[in-house]
Design a protein around this nucleic acid. Structure first.
Lengths: 347, 347
DNA sequence: TCCCGAAGTTCGATTTAAATG
DNA sequence: GCATTTAAATCGAACTTCGGG
């Protein structure tokens, strides 16, 4: 390994001068171009790369941001990660990604690992989060800028969410405008943050058009630690819904995975989607475009949400550096209806 | 921040003694239990956490492994990452994941970032890799253990791949045993490493049972930097294949995404899958189980592949520490036929 | 006083060599 | 392999201070 001292002796100057020149520090303005050139040439000749770790020890800057995702196998989080990655990359920060598998002990251990590594900021992707995390304690103690995607947290932690209520309203409005009146609902798990506002959107739209929601046709996904369980549970609940009356002409699922489960159940029972029953999802994960029929759904601007969270955190980092106070931001992003093949006018 | 010196003064001993006790270093043998207890108590009381970065500066050990993935939006790589993550987690290593978006400059920049951070090992997930990477140069220079998943590289870099030839043979054998004789093939892109061995498996099986492969029914996916392009290309190629003769009763796609594209094209032309045409994929990515019909495919043991690569690298790290030589390993993992709904006996 | 460069200190922990009872 | 503890050197870079022309 070639150190700053090697460059110093190679160039004939001291380590201090080399440091000043190579970092273009304020003092460098007094140093004659000839000296600079010789030092730079020597550095290049030796292939000198500053040791970022030694550098950190003095500067306290790690140029890293911790990213904690509740479960990477959830297709939902992938575009978010892309958004984060892009934003950090352009700011020359390195994300350190940890996957907590929706486990409390993993969350704690990984959070410690990140703090031990002196990440300058923290982003939590709460894509499918059931464990009761406690970012607040550890984070406010360390005074480290943080943002969470998919949940709202009070305090100094910024949050980015989709406007769930508006999204749900959009979805139901779509089905309603296609003429559907007997609509089944698969709601989210009780303890998931998105569940309540989405249902609120549904109820408020229904009330506004005097649509009756039959409680016989409403079921809840069970709590589960596995994001991919929605598929199977969507299947099971749809089978159950089909045994109830009245028969529905459209089904609104909590998310895309449960919508896929629903479609599978409907087809299994000989009901063609969308001919005999329309299905709408929520999220717009990658497979939604691929399936047959492709899925009508509510798109969350996932990549933008990731970028937004990263932006907030980076702003926070700057604020800390300049010892400014910075209020946390709480952004709600607009969802978008994506009409594909799984919905159709009511028969 | 509480340092080792704080613990020293709090406990009444020197920093050296604190270090020896807390790390349970060899010299700790001579230290009486009473001293140890006082030091440990003081450390706990102050909430002392060693600064891993300062520690690294002396020990040269970062306890991190770099993981470079060619494109995270590829569902194929997710289980691999899970496997890597699990293996590293249990060994108390932290993965530093970077996504190179299949871009050469990103590869180089990220590799430098990882090396600058003194990762102790390197894993490359070549899930959809078109850029001509040159791990060898940088890595052999730094003498850092490395492994690549999805490609075979000569030299000191270990590799983990699925046995593509066996997998392709398995797929074709399945279709053949269902009675299909007129089979269409969508081959992989010319420059992707998997393409050739898979085709070899097909040809060898066909020869062994005297199955004729009609070159009219063979098409190639174009080269593309986007892993998700296979879907669209699978669609386009299938539309083209349907215009050719003879009409086929089964289609073997290069991967699951192109299989989805094919199914979509077939359905669009009014051909029911699997009634009128069987389709088989390769990989067994998550959506394969979800789609309607669910996809018959060749499963790659992705999580095991990730774990295996991580294992090789960790062994390499140990070898380096003990100054042993360690030959690189080149593993071929067995694929597995997963029969679902998209294949059926020939009409 | 201005310019240029170097010596020395610091960051936090590890480790060696040495001192002391 | 006395037992017990510590001062001092070290890792690599950055920054403060200081001195000579």
């Amino acid at each position: 390994m070639v150190t700053i001292r090697d460059v110093a002796s190679e160039s004939g100057f001291s380590a201090a001068t080399v440091s000043i020149v190579l970092n273009n520090a304020p003092l460098a303005r007094y140093i004659p171009p000839a000296t600079k050139a010789r030092i730079q040439k020597a550095a290049k000749r030796l292939g000198y790369r500053p040791n970022v770790i030694a550098r950190f020890l003095r500067s306290k800057r790690s140029h890293t941001v911790g990213v904690m995702v509740s479960d990477v196998t959830d297709p939902f989080c992938i575009p978010i990660l892309r958004g984060i990655d892009n934003a950090l990359y352009h700011a020359s920060y390195l994300p350190i990604l940890v996957d907590i598998h929706n486990q409390r002990d993993r969350f704690e251990r990984h959070l410690e690992m990140l703090l031990d590594r002196h990440v300058e900021g923290l982003i939590m992707v709460a894509n499918w989060l059931f464990v009761d995390i406690n970012l607040l304690g550890d984070i406010e103690k360390h005074n480290i800028p943080a943002a969470i995607i998919g949940r709202e947290l009070k305090g100094s932690i910024s949050s980015v969410m989709v406007d769930n209520e508006a999204g749900a309203r959009l979805a139901l409005e779509h089905l309603y405008s296609l003429g559907h009146r007997r609509i089944a609902f698969i709601r989210g798990p009780k303890t998931l943050a998105d569940t309540v506002p989405r249902w609120r959107g549904i109820v408020s739209f229904a009330r506004s058009v005097k649509l009756r929601i039959d409680s016989n046709l409403v079921m809840d996904l069970p709590n589960s630690l596995d994001p991919n369980s929605s598929f199977e549970n969507g299947y099971r609940l749809t089978v159950a819904l089909l045994k109830r009356r009245p028969r529905f002409t459209a089904l609104m699922a909590f998310d895309d995975l449960s919508a896929f489960g629903a479609i599978r159940a409907l087809e299994k029972q000989g009901l063609n989607v969308p001919q005999e029953c329309s299905v709408i999802g929520f999220d717009d994960i990658a497979p939604s475009m691929l399936s047959v029929p492709s899925l009508t759904t509510i798109r969350q601007p996932l990549q933008a949400m990731g970028a937004s969270a990263a932006g907030s955190v980076l702003e926070g980092v700057d604020a800390v550096l300049e010892k400014r106070e910075l209020a946390s931001t709480h952004r709600k992003m607009a969802p978008e209806l994506v009409v594909r093949e799984s919905t159709r006018p009511a028969p």
